[in-house]
Nucleic acid binder design. Structure first.
Lengths: 185, 185
DNA sequence: TGCTAACCGGAGGCATACCTCCGCTAATCT
DNA sequence: AGATTAGCGGAGGTATGCCTCCGGTTAGCA
């Protein structure tokens, strides 16, 4: 489960339990209520006191970031798994994963916009994961030359904030977007 | 300025002034801070007391809706203006307008998702404005047959929530999206 | 100009969330 | 088992936003 970016977990058994429970509860809460979910609610979900939350994550930002380190690591893993596919397929699969993933954890979009120390480094990790797939597909002539990886990410990430009628529509619309960045002719 | 959907404005001169100031302030505030901007802040921006806000808009929802009636009417007007262009161009221009518009007033996206009496009717107006442009372009063979207007709107509306580096990137990415829904061959 | 109904606006009560502080608990070590 | 000390958790102070209520003001009319 360890990835390119890691966090320091507490030492004692009970503390570690609480830390993990908080992280899981926070992930759920952020997914459900967005980035400004109530911290008191998160503590309750995790079954710990509010004090414990603050000891582990002194600022709201710290908790938010800790959650995204996990998410990011998983996206990086997905990129590695896709690397063995043909260029276009690899990019396509990764972007699908990106969208499907971010739909449930929608706050991940903020990652592209917000600004902070760790956000920046998370972004670096994500780009390091996806950009090679993009570059390979572009060099293979499968992706139009006038698009950048950043363009693609923003085009696709928009899809995560729309509430689709069903998964079929989401997939269909994503295919449209993919067609849009595909090399013509 | 009157459009398909209208609101009742107060009678007395001072009341009307305040009403308009509130609407303008709310539009700014929603654009800036999102749909849950502080009502007290909006009243302050408008230079009126909080009581005046509540007299005009008893519930937060009322104010929010009032703002969007204006936005929607403008989008409808834009559709009318675009109707004289060739099929594809008309759709393209209208969607550009939609994106450029919604970028500054980002909360308009909620319109596609949220549910309420007036939201529904606003959505009806918006669809009534844009759908004919879409249908015409599709019948002219310019838009792929397997896309619906709803698909397109969701694809494009996603672009409004991403923070682009600059307007040029936004336009470029929108072009990618448009290419994606264009008929191939 | 004077009357009066319509309108104004902010004080204040209520709810919610943030965050700190510290007495109690229990994990770990010897 | 007992000592040590990291860790727990919630009471409570602070801040902020929601919304109501009503004494004072003023636009519109005659």
């Amino acid at each position: 489960m360890d990835g390119p970016v890691t966090l320091r977990r507490p030492q004692r058994a009970d503390a570690r339990r609480n830390y993990d429970a908080l992280l899981a509860a926070a992930r759920d809460a952020f997914a459900e209520k967005g980035a400004d979910a109530s911290l008191e609610d998160i503590a309750k979900r995790a079954g710990v006191g509010i004090g414990t939350l603050y000891r582990n994550f002194p600022a709201r930002q710290d908790l938010f970031e800790a959650v995204y380190v996990e998410e990011i690591n998983q996206l990086a893993a997905a990129a590695e798994a896709a690397a063995s596919l043909p260029p276009w397929e690899a990019l396509r699969v990764w972007l699908q994963r990106f969208v499907a993933y971010a739909v449930t954890k929608r706050a991940i979009i903020d990652l592209l916009n917000r600004d902070s120390e760790m956000f920046r480094s998370c972004r670096v990790v994500m780009y390091a994961a996806g950009e090679p797939l993009f570059a390979r597909a572009q060099q293979a002539g499968e992706v139009r030359a006038d698009a950048s990886f950043d363009d693609v990410l923003r085009l696709v990430s928009g899809l995560t904030s729309a509430a689709f009628v069903d998964d079929a529509q989401r997939d269909r619309v994503l295919e449209f977007a993919l067609d849009g960045i595909r090399a013509t002719g």
